[in-house]
Amino acid sequence: MGIGNVSERRDEAPQVGVTSVILALGPADGGARRRLWLPLVRRVREPFLGAWALPGGPLRAGRSLERSAYETLASTTDLHPGYLEQLYTFGDPERSHGGVPMVSICYWALVGQVDVASLEPKHNVAWFAEDALPELAFDHRRIVDYAIWRLRHRLDMPKVVRELVGGTFTLRELHAVSEAVEGHPIDLANFRRRTLASGMLEETGEHRRVGRQRPAALYRFRADVAPADDGALPQGFDAGDLSRIAAHAADERTAGGHDGHPDAIAALTTDVRP
């Protein structure tokens, strides 16, 4: 059954989908500042046929929001996220560009440090640097910008930063992560002084040599340090939570059954397979 003309579609009850921004820290390129990267999917249907968009899919019965977001991650990249957090809900009536009105519940995820050049192509997915994105379909650029803003406001949370820098790190490595997330150079001396004064780190007693530099002290986040977040932003899911979500998804796949994208919801969701 068709879904009517533009006027009729605009009067339809909104469909609900889940959209994800998947962020990874790419390697330094020739000594340049490290950058954040994210996968995009080339659309295979109108509107915006052939344009790049964030991965997403419909919210299906019997699945939690987090489970739906995790499955979006799994269908886009073989990397395993270590952090997942609900971002925002976007529901402007005009965002569907004449399609069925669509509400997108958006998540952002971290998959750690990735050598993007070594990733095998998967379906119609490609990775792009955050500061060199193509023009995106719908309002997806706004969603990306909000996800990066959220990450910048998570740099005081050890469980978030550890996904990008690891369990132990030098101050220079932590500085490189902060520059990548903030998107601009940060004075190293001021960064070192401010970071050590924060009281969030402790020395491990070990050292690491990076390149030709002399061995540098290794630090870690103190176990007793609570994030400075005042509760205004929601807390996300860490690797342990995501492992349980993945296990439930695997059990259900073993039991059989996986439905495709309904045509009515295709306007603002992006299946990775053509």
Rank of each mutant, 00 (worst) to 15 (best):
L119W: 02
R152I: 05
I22W: 14
Y107M: 10
G236Q: 07
D224G: 03
L188F: 15
S68C: 14
R162Y: 05
L218A: 02
G26Y: 15
S68P: 12
V210N: 09
A74M: 10
G257S: 07
H123C: 01
H258G: 14
P274V: 14
P93Y: 11
P93E: 09
P215W: 10
G57A: 01
L25V: 07
S198Q: 06
V44L: 06
F90V: 10
T269D: 01
D263C: 04
E66H: 10
H184Q: 11
F169C: 00
A228V: 06
E8F: 02
G205P: 13
F221R: 05
A53P: 08
L133C: 01
G211H: 07
G99A: 09
R212I: 01
E206S: 05
V181I: 07
P93A: 03
E135H: 12
H175D: 06
L73C: 10
A109E: 05
I245N: 08
R95M: 13
Y146V: 06
P47E: 09
L164C: 00
R10A: 13
R172C: 04
A228P: 02
Q15E: 13
M1F: 12
D139N: 15
G57W: 07
L84H: 03
E12Y: 15
D238T: 02
A216K: 08
A264Q: 14
E46D: 13
V165M: 03
W127I: 00
W52S: 01
H248C: 13
A53Q: 03
R10N: 07
T170R: 07
A109H: 10
I265Q: 15
S243P: 06
I3E: 15
E66C: 10
V225K: 03
D29I: 13
H123W: 02
L40D: 03
K122S: 06
